[in-house]
Computed example of a mutant assay.
Amino acid sequence: MLSPGKYDVGALTIGNNALSSIRVPANWRVTLHKNSGFGGAKLVVHGGEIALLDDAWNDEVSSIVVEEPVVAYADENFSGRAALLWPGIYDLSELGLADDTLSSLRVPVGHGVTVWENGDFSGASFEVLESTANLGVNNDRGSSLEVFQR
Rank of each mutant, 00 (worst) to 15 (best):
F38L: 13
G40F: 07
A51S: 15
E94K: 11
G119Y: 04
E67L: 10
K42S: 15
F121R: 02
W116M: 04
S131E: 03
V44A: 12
V109N: 12
T101I: 07
G136S: 15
G39R: 12
G15R: 04
L53R: 03
W28P: 08
F121H: 10
A26W: 05
S36E: 14
E60K: 15
E130W: 02
D59P: 05
S103T: 10
G88A: 11
S79E: 12
E49A: 14
E94I: 02
G39D: 10
I89T: 13
G47M: 12
L12M: 15
A18M: 08
S62Y: 01
Y73W: 12
F121N: 01
Y73Q: 04
E76I: 14
N118M: 03
N134T: 09
A98M: 09
L105Q: 01
N58H: 08
A124M: 07
K34L: 05
I14R: 07
L92E: 01
R81L: 11
V44W: 06
F121C: 07
G47D: 07
Y73L: 02
T132D: 15
L43F: 06
T31M: 12
V107Q: 01
G110F: 02
L19E: 07
V115F: 00
E117Y: 00
E130P: 00
T31C: 10
G48Y: 06
H111P: 01
D59V: 06
N16V: 03
H46N: 14
G48K: 11
S131A: 11
S125F: 04
G136W: 04
N77C: 03
E49S: 15
V109L: 10
V24C: 11
P87W: 08
V24G: 05
V107S: 03
V115C: 04
A11W: 04
L129R: 11
F38M: 13
E130C: 03
D55W: 05
L85K: 01
D75M: 08
A133G: 14
A41R: 13
W116C: 01
G40I: 12
S104P: 09
R23Y: 09
R23N: 13
E68P: 00
S21V: 00
G39C: 10
V45R: 07
S21H: 06
F126P: 00
A26G: 08
S21A: 15
E117F: 03
G96E: 10
L95F: 09
E127N: 14
N134Q: 10
G96Q: 10
L97I: 09
P25D: 13
E60N: 15
F121D: 02
T132K: 00
L12H: 10
A56N: 14
D100M: 06
